[in-house]
Computed example of a mutant assay.
Amino acid sequence: MLIDSHCHLDFEALSADLDGVMARAALAGVTGMVTISTRVDNFSTYAGIAERFENVWCSVGTHPHNADQELHIQTDDLVRLSAHPRCVAIGEAGLDYFYDDAPREAQAVGLRRHIAAARVTGLPLVIHSRAADDDMAAVLEEEAGQGAFPFVLHCFTAGVDLAQRALALGGYVSFSGIITFKNAEEIREVAKLVPADRYLVETDAPYLAPIPHRGQSNEPSFVRHTAEKLAEVRGITLEQLGAETTANFGRLFSKTGLS
């Protein structure tokens, strides 16, 4: 049993064939998934997908690429929308200095508003962090000093330092299909170090399809390939990995009722 903790079912590559996507996921042993928000203004779309499928949940948040376009979204807005029964997380929000699609100041403002919403609601914050390790760690540590909040570093692509600092704050780390790529040795080393009760698997579909589907549009059923590689890296069976990641998902995304 596997759960895709992060995908984007509203993106056209998946939304055009949602019934097929769900059927293939079931055949691959994927029993649940979270469709992740990238724009709060589109929340009704995410919620509608989650309402349609009993094993799909959603989040509410603004991707850092869109941070400057949703500066009108306040913490209270996130808290209010997150009360939807199918909404189980805040985000994704964070810092992306690789693309810098939005001013860094806007990204930081958005991240802190999302952290505040996670703190108020107790829902996990789904964090996007790319090429921003030092600033991300500093923000997390500063904010944690003002009150704990649950979070996961999704699609982990950073170094050991950010992972260790996040874990020290009680955070989780989620691994995507990148872990199957030939040049991802540093990420595989991190994957060996994360405690058994603190890691998740995801696709980030429709992006980052794992080997042997690299270059194709990703989908939740492909999380099995990521899980197989992650199990190999950690020296455990796929069955054990499925049990551990499902338990971790239920604990972190407690609103799903799977804990």
Rank of each mutant, 00 (worst) to 15 (best):
V233G: 04
G171L: 02
T203I: 05
S254L: 01
S259N: 14
T246D: 00
P64I: 02
E228A: 15
V233F: 01
D10E: 15
K229E: 15
A148E: 13
S5N: 10
G242A: 12
I73L: 02
E92A: 07
L200T: 03
F181A: 03
F98N: 15
V88C: 14
L123P: 04
R86H: 11
E186G: 06
V173S: 03
V79Q: 02
I90F: 12
S176F: 12
E141W: 03
E141Y: 04
H84G: 05
S176V: 08
G235C: 03
P210H: 05
G257W: 04
R188S: 04
V139S: 04
I187W: 10
I36K: 05
A231E: 09
D41G: 13
F149L: 09
R119Y: 06
D135Q: 14
W57E: 09
P124Q: 03
V30G: 06
E189D: 13
E185G: 00
R214Y: 12
V223R: 10
P210T: 07
L125G: 09
R214S: 08
R113E: 00
T38K: 05
A118T: 02
L123A: 08
P85I: 04
D135A: 13
D204G: 12
V34S: 03
D77H: 13
M33I: 07
R224H: 09
D19I: 11
S221Y: 10
A144E: 00
L153M: 14
F249H: 11
L140S: 07
E141R: 10
S259Y: 08
E232G: 13
P210L: 05
P124K: 08
S82H: 11
E189N: 13
Q164V: 02
I3W: 12
L71F: 02
D133R: 12
A93G: 13
F149I: 01
V152G: 08
K229I: 06
L81E: 04
D4M: 02
I211S: 12
P85N: 11
T31P: 00
C155K: 12
I236P: 06
E239A: 15
I115T: 05
P150I: 12
V233W: 08
R113W: 10
G48F: 08
G110Q: 11
G170T: 00
F43N: 07
A23P: 00
E12W: 11
F98G: 00
E142F: 07
V34C: 00
A231W: 12
F149M: 05
G94Q: 09
P124M: 10
I187C: 09
E12G: 04
M1H: 15
G48N: 10
E189K: 15
R113Q: 01
D100M: 13
R119G: 05
T38W: 01
L81F: 03
A106G: 04
Y46H: 14
R52C: 02
P64M: 07
H72D: 13
V60Q: 14
G48E: 09
E142W: 07
F222N: 15
R52Y: 05
Q74G: 05
G235T: 07
V30M: 10
N55D: 14
G170A: 03
G159C: 08
I115N: 12
A158I: 00
L27K: 14
D77K: 00
E51D: 15
V126E: 01
A50L: 06
